[in-house]
Amino acid sequence: MPTMPKSLFWSRTDTAGSEHAVFDDREGLLARGVVLAVDPIPYTCRYQLTVGADWCTSSLEVEATGAGWARNVRLERAGDGWRVRTGEEGDLDAALRAAGHPPAGLPGTDEPDRLAAALDVDLSGSPLFNTLPVRRIGLGRTPADHARQVTVAWVLLPGLAVLPTDQVYTSLGPGRVRFASDTFTADLDIDPDGFVVRYPGLAERIDPR
């Protein structure tokens, strides 16, 4: 497994948790990361992401584990659509119900054709994945108030269901991007390479001193 030349670390602000990603962005993006969170139940998520030189996602592998359960999903671009494979051990839904939360349902999707329009993927709770449409669209080079709608394959944690979701990214000038999905909106601070520095209500990056 090759080593990665860069890394980023975020602390969650919506719950106890964090994300650490190591990556190489010299030609597209190859990233491996770990997401930790206690909400809705404690879990650890590990992912590996491959993005081409055009910043369209090629593949994403995600594994989520907690007490008494484990799930995984793999998304791989195949022609004009996506191939989705899943695995499951234990009973996540039982763990969620015991903690007073609704069940997550099955991982993956029964209708991968609904993901056909997605050029990007998004992992819930992870600020790294906002970089994908920002870099692919080139929002860092567009004038303020330039808005673009994208369709993403959204992977929900901890259950790993995969949904097609429309999102809107709007340039607000240097270092600022507005993210909107359905009724949710957040103004993100990003660095010159398009990586999130601050995501209000979700996470803040912790840089080495």
Rank of each mutant, 00 (worst) to 15 (best):
T3Q: 14
T3F: 14
M4N: 09
M4W: 14
K6L: 14
F9T: 14
S11K: 15
R12W: 11
G17R: 07
E19R: 14
V22Q: 12
R26W: 05
A37G: 12
V38A: 13
P40T: 02
I41F: 04
I41G: 02
Y43H: 12
Y47T: 07
V51G: 00
V51M: 07
A53Y: 05
D54V: 13
D54M: 10
E61R: 08
W69E: 02
N72D: 10
V73K: 01
W82A: 12
W82D: 11
R83S: 15
R85P: 06
G87F: 07
E89R: 10
G90K: 06
A95Q: 04
R97L: 13
A98N: 06
G100I: 09
P107E: 02
G108E: 02
T109K: 01
D110K: 09
D110E: 15
D113P: 09
A116V: 04
A116H: 11
L119C: 13
D122K: 04
S126Q: 11
S126F: 06
F129V: 15
N130S: 13
L132R: 11
P133S: 09
R136P: 06
I137Q: 00
L139V: 06
G140R: 06
G140P: 08
G140S: 12
G140I: 05
R141A: 15
T142D: 08
A144R: 12
D145R: 15
D145Q: 13
H146S: 12
Q149T: 15
V150A: 02
V150M: 09
T151W: 04
T151F: 10
W154T: 02
W154F: 14
L157N: 01
L157S: 09
G159L: 03
L163W: 08
P164K: 04
T165L: 15
T170A: 01
S171K: 07
L172W: 00
G175S: 01
R178S: 08
F179C: 06
T183E: 15
T183W: 10
F184A: 12
I190E: 04
P192K: 05
P192N: 13
V196N: 02
V196W: 00
V197W: 04
V197Q: 13
P200D: 11
E204R: 13
I206H: 12
I206T: 14
D207H: 11
P208H: 10
